[in-house]
């Protein structure tokens, strides 16, 4: 078996991993969305490259051509691209709202704020309302 013939899948895998890496290693929410769209494109490449037939032409019927690439993946991916942008826009809208609520789009900052809020609630619930020095110490760190 000639292994080089599989190169299209390897390109897909590499792109997918770059996208995956951005999503899990970066804390900035916008960067994560860009990573997600790279991941998405890699799946598009997987479908389209599977539909390709060597020596064929685009699937628009004409008397001069006999061999066409597979049109089915094209249909699936075409709609997926437009749906992809709609969901990305949704994600961006969420990012805007998160920024308005927290003043940051870094995951760790948001986490710290959430923890502080929870600690505050906890202190209040157990009657330590005046022991704010506990809370403030935590915040300074």
């Amino acid at each position: 078996m000639n292994i080089i013939g599989l190169y299209n899948y390897w390109i897909v895998v590499v792109l997918m991993l770059i996208g995956f890496f951005i999503v899990i290693a970066h804390e900035n929410l916008i960067k994560k969305l860009v990573g997600l769209s790279i991941f998405q494109t890699s799946v598009f490449f997987l479908y389209i490259s599977m539909g390709k037939v060597a020596g064929a032409t685009a699937p628009i019927l004409d008397e001069n051509y006999q061999l066409y690439s597979n049109p089915l993946p094209h249909v699936l991916i075409l709609t997926a691209i437009v749906v992809g942008i709609a969901t990305t826009a949704m994600g961006l809208a969420l990012v805007v709202r998160i920024y308005e609520a927290y003043g940051s789009i870094e995951e760790s900052d948001i986490q710290v704020q959430d923890n502080n809020d929870r600690l505050e609630d906890y202190l209040e619930a157990y009657g330590h309302k005046n022991d704010t020095h506990l809370f403030n110490q935590d915040k300074d760190e």
């Binding site: 539909g51 390709k52 685009a58 690439s69 691209i81 942008i85």
Partner: peptide, 19 residues
């Protein structure tokens, strides 16, 4: 290049434009 003309069209207008 992979014969997916409609997809290329969509990606160019959506990915490079609106997105």
């Amino acid at each position: 290049d992979l014969d997916a003309v409609d997809v290329a069209f969509t990606e160019a207008s959506v990915g490079a434009g609106i997105s």
